[in-house]
Structures are given as structure tokens and as C-alpha cells.
């Protein structure tokens, strides 16, 4: 589409964007409030950040969450990429319908249902085969299950647009199917792998409902600690924590976005260059 949007539309757009960002900006402002009461501005201070960095409960939970998130997103990227290759490259196989369903359903399945059913599975498994004990391990297993969907969807659309002729050319030149895939298609889908890994990382770091349900005693992730503190009431140190997370995620997304876009432009330029030098004898 290439028609100018009317001023009314643009106003709605910017009002919507303001609505999305205002609460976060206010939260960041509150985090520098010296007073513990939100209603009173007690002057600028970084006391809550200081308090945060000396709170072992929050630091431990953050470290646990980070380890769970890194493990789960790595596992999900592997499984999700395999699923995407299966769905794009093998048009017909037994279980295709099942796989499509199982990849799409977790995206819309209410977390509380996924969590409860998975917990019931883990309990039954523990009773019959003595594995897995509830805790970080079951959280990782559950996170891999829902993160895989996001990876598959992202990589699938990327794979679909990837040109297969390069891979065929590599195979004509003697590469095996796996080698040809790794040399030609993998670099093309690499940005999708990176961005879906990052997406899984944030989804896993953020998950409260599934983690609370499948976790066992002793394994409290960061969202679980935040939730219990928020339910209890005044939480100026959570303001500081939230601001740190928002700033960190914002910076990461902006940097990752810029890097990926540059890499993509570089790749397109090289491709054009190669095509042009091919055309000119």
C-alpha cells in the first residue's frame, strides 16, 4: 500500500503507542523515587537499586531464571528448527497433521491449562518411573515445549522464502544433503534462529504461570518472586528491578535488530554482486 495515512489515523497510532509505553516510563521514573510510597515524590535517589543488588532472594531467583531460560531456549531452537524443516521440506509424512497441530496449539493455549496438564504428567511419571523430580528440570522441560512453537513459526516462514536452488547447486557440486543444507540454507535462516532464540529467552524469563505450576519446592524463578512481592503490596525495589529489565531488554532488542538488519543487507548486497558478476561475462 502506498497511500498517505490520514492525520486521524496517525493520531490513533501515536496515542496507541503512547498507551503502550507510558506505564513503563512512569515505572522507571518511580524507581528513582527516594520515598517508598508511590504517592509521594521524595527526591531523586538510587537507593532501591542499591537495595536490589543486596537482596540475595532476588539475585538467586534471577540467576536460576537465567540458567533455565538459556537451557530451554537452546533446546527449543534445536527442536523448533527440526520441526520447521520437517514441515517445509517434507510435504507429506505420517504425523504431519499432528505436528502442525502441536506446533500451533501452544501459541494460543491458555498457560494455566498447559501448566496444569503438564504438572499432572510429571506427577504421574514420578510415581511410575521415578523421574523427573519437580524443580528446575521440570520447568525447563515445560518451557522447551511451548518455546518450540515460537521457533517453528519463525523459522518456517524464513525457510519458505529461502531459495532452494542454491542447495541444489551445492548438491550438484557433490555436497551431501546435510552438507548442502549447512552451507547454503543455514546462513539464510541464521537470523531467524538468533531472533527466535532471543524470543524464547524472554518468554522463558517471563513465564510465571507454567513455572509456578510445574515447579517444586525450592525452585523459585524471578517471576515467581516478583509476583509474590507484587501481591504483598508496596515494592519500590521491584520498580528498580523492572526498570533494569526494561532497559536491558530494550537495549538488547535494538542492538540485535540493528545487527540483524545490517547482516541481512550485507547478504543481499553480496548476492546482488554475485548475480551481476555472473551476468557480465
Amino acid at each position: 500500500m502506498d497511500q498517505r495515512a490520514s492525520p486521524v489515523l496517525m493520531t490513533i497510532l501515536f496515542a496507541g503507542i503512547a498507551f503502550l509505553y507510558l506505564p513503563m516510563l512512569v515505572l522507571i521514573a518511580y524507581s528513582f523515587n527516594q520515598s517508598a510510597l508511590v504517592s509521594v515524590w521524595g527526591g531523586f535517589s538510587t537507593v532501591w537499586y542499591d537495595r536490589l543488588l543486596h537482596n540475595p532472594q532476588i539475585l538467586d531467583a534471577a540467576w536460576l531464571s537465567l540458567r533455565i531460560a538459556i537451557t530451554a531456549s537452546t533446546g527449543a531452537v534445536v527442536l523448533g528448527t527440526l520441526a520447521a524443516i520437517a514441515l517445509v521440506r517434507f510435504r507429506r509424512f505420517r504425523g504431519r497433521f499432528l505436528l502442525t497441530g502441536m506446533v500451533n496449539a501452544p501459541l494460543v493455549m491458555p498457560e494455566i491449562i498447559t501448566g496444569i496438564t503438564q504438572l499432572l504428567l510429571f506427577i504421574s511419571m514420578l510415581n511410575t518411573i521415578g523421574w523427573p523430580h519437580r524443580g528446575a528440570l521440570t520447568i525447563v522441560i515445560a518451557h522447551i515445549a511451548f518455546c518450540t512453537s515460537y521457533v517453528t513459526i519463525t523459522v518456517q516462514s524464513r525457510l519458505q522464502s529461502a531459495d532452494r536452488s542454491l542447495e541444489e547447486a551445492a548438491m550438484d557440486l557433490g555436497a551431501g544433503p546435510v552438507g548442502a543444507f549447512l552451507d547454503t540454507t543455514l546462513p539464510i535462516i541464521a537470523p531467524a534462529l538468533v531472533s527466535s532464540w532471543l524470543l524464547c529467552l524472554t518468554l522463558s524469563l517471563d513465564d510465571l504461570v507454567i513455572s509456578s505450576l510445574v515447579s517444586g519446592p525450592g525452585a523459585s524463578t524471578l517471576p515467581m518472586v516478583i509476583y509474590s512481592k507484587v501481591k504483598l503490596g508496596v515494592t519500590p525495589d521491584i520498580n528498580a528491578l523492572a526498570s533494569l529489565i526494561i532497559a536491558l531488554v530494550g537495549a538488547c532488542v535494538l542492538i540485535a535488530g540493528a545487527t540483524l538488519r545490517r547482516a541481512e543487507r550485507q547478504r543481499l548486497r553480496e548476492q546482488q554482486f554475485a548475480e551481476r558478476s555472473e551476468a557480465a561475462p
Binding site: 532471543l198 524472554t202 517471563d206 510465571l208 529489565i245
Partner: peptide, 11 residues
């Protein structure tokens, strides 16, 4: 990309 829980809290 930022935390869902924290955004609800921010509201």
C-alpha cells in the same frame, strides 16, 4: 519483548 508480568505491574 519486555516482561508481561512487569508490564501488568507497571499499569
Amino acid at each position: 519483548w519486555t516482561s508481561f508480568l512487569l508490564r501488568v505491574y507497571a499499569l
